Simulated assay, not measured.
Amino acid sequence: MKAACVIGRLKDDIGDYEVEHDREYVANAVKCYMKDNASSKEKAIEKICKLIDDAWMDITEEILGPTTIPMPLLVRILNFCRSTETICTDSNNYTVIGQAMKDYIKMLLIEPIHV
């Protein structure tokens, strides 16, 4: 769950950076990294993406390795992270719903694949 929260928060911060850039009071991982390390936006996003990759590795290790946590619970956490990756892209489909997100919802709910 901790890795899932890391992925969700950091992906959202990357997607929201441009929208929240003008608001001074909003805490954002990209803005904080740029300020603390006197770096560019691109360098901050690169470092944050590395943290996201590390969180994905933690999830993968937990799912593939021996664990006492039930597999159905792990699968739900994995699916939550997958949906976060889809929703919180660089264009941030969560804050500003674009055509891509509308198409995803349409494919999922209106035109599902019948098995």
Results as ranks from 00 to 15, higher is better:
K2Q: 12
K2V: 11
K2I: 08
A3V: 02
A3S: 09
A3C: 11
A4L: 11
A4Q: 15
C5G: 13
C5A: 13
V6E: 05
V6F: 03
V6G: 01
V6R: 04
V6D: 06
I7A: 05
I7N: 02
I7H: 10
G8W: 03
R9E: 06
K11Y: 07
D13M: 01
G15C: 04
D16C: 11
D16H: 00
Y17I: 01
Y17V: 02
E20M: 04
D22P: 04
D22M: 08
R23Y: 06
E24Q: 05
Y25L: 07
Y25H: 10
Y25V: 07
Y25I: 03
N28M: 06
V30P: 02
V30K: 02
K31R: 09
K31Q: 08
K31E: 00
C32R: 04
C32P: 00
C32N: 09
M34S: 06
D36P: 05
D36R: 10
D36G: 03
D36F: 07
N37P: 10
S39M: 12
S39G: 06
S40T: 15
S40E: 05
E42D: 12
E42H: 06
E42N: 04
K43R: 07
K43V: 14
K43P: 02
A44F: 05
A44L: 03
E46G: 05
E46D: 12
C49H: 14
K50E: 14
L51P: 00
L51Q: 09
A55E: 01
A55G: 08
A55D: 06
W56D: 09
D58Q: 10
D58T: 04
I59W: 12
I59M: 15
E61C: 15
E61Q: 13
E61I: 13
E61K: 15
I63D: 00
G65F: 00
P66D: 07
T67K: 04
T67M: 05
T68N: 10
I69G: 03
M71K: 04
P72L: 08
L74Y: 01
V75M: 10
R76H: 10
R76S: 07
L78M: 09
F80A: 10
R82H: 10
R82E: 05
R82K: 13
S83N: 14
T84A: 08
E85D: 12
E85S: 08
T86I: 13
I87H: 01
I87V: 15
C88Q: 00
T89D: 14
D90C: 02
D90N: 11
S91F: 09
N92T: 12
N92V: 04
N92A: 02
N93M: 08
Y94G: 00
V96I: 14
V96Y: 13
I97C: 02
G98D: 15
Q99Y: 14
A100E: 12
A100R: 07
A100L: 05
M101I: 01
K102T: 09
D103I: 05
Y104Q: 11
Y104I: 09
K106I: 02
K106E: 11
L108R: 08
I110R: 05
E111N: 13
I113S: 12
I113K: 15
I113M: 06
V115H: 15
